[in-house]
Design a protein around this nucleic acid. Structure first.
Lengths: 106, 106
DNA sequence: TTGCTCCTCACGTCACGTGAGGTGGC
DNA sequence: TTGCTCCTCACGTCACGTGAGGTGGC
């Protein structure tokens, strides 16, 4: 898969992937004869996993520590992050309610 | 209330409020004899409202357009934003589920 | 004079966004 | 030669974070 295909398949910007490469999180598996970047299945899986980590609120630096960490450490970190995200959901609910209140007062 | 008191009462950083001032969203109502910044009740309410808008996902520039907007425009914008935040909640739920799946596969 | 608090800049941070300038096949 | 796509920098963005350097009352 070329960079363009990866971007459209997984809905990630070219610049974002470039950022992951700069951070040392992934690297293209090679280039085709035109010099276009190529990503094999492993690279793609890695990118998808980076995306999941980001959506769970991890920073790039944290992802760098986690992506190749032992399974038990990774599991612990993920479970902890799930709790954080649940709290964030509650915070969003709180502010939605505050907004309803404000609308009522207007 | 001094800046320090506003910060601790509403749990907002000094730098954040400074940012609001620079953006023209609020200004201190005055200074005391020591030159310390003071915020009266109106300023405080304004800061609280800015915070609510931020928590609802509005950008500083958007808040600048909304904070003194007519009631009906404000209401419409808030209702629209509530929908956006609900979608964000769903996205968080989605990624939490994806994370549970990943944990199961590890 | 020493400490403490507050003030006002101003550079740093984070994860990209958005071009700029250059290359290669058609 | 012209268009199009892709590449690799590199400055810009956003909302503060984090000092730096200076002031004033105790």
């Amino acid at each position: 898969m070329t960079l363009r295909e990866v971007c459209s398949t997984y809905d990630i910007s070219r610049r974002a992937i470039q950022g992951y490469e700069k951070a040392g999180l992934v690297s293209a598996s090679g280039k085709n004869k035109y010099g276009h970047l190529l990503y094999d299945e492993d690279s793609q899986k890695r990118i998808v996993r980076i995306r999941l980590f980001q959506q769970m609120g991890f920073r790039i630096k944290e992802i760098r520590d986690l992506i190749d960490a032992p399974t038990d450490i990774l599991k612990t970190a993920l479970k902890k992050q799930i709790e954080k995200r649940k709290e964030e959901k509650e915070r969003i609910e709180y502010w939605i309610n505050e907004t309803y209140k404000l609308i009522g007062e207007l």
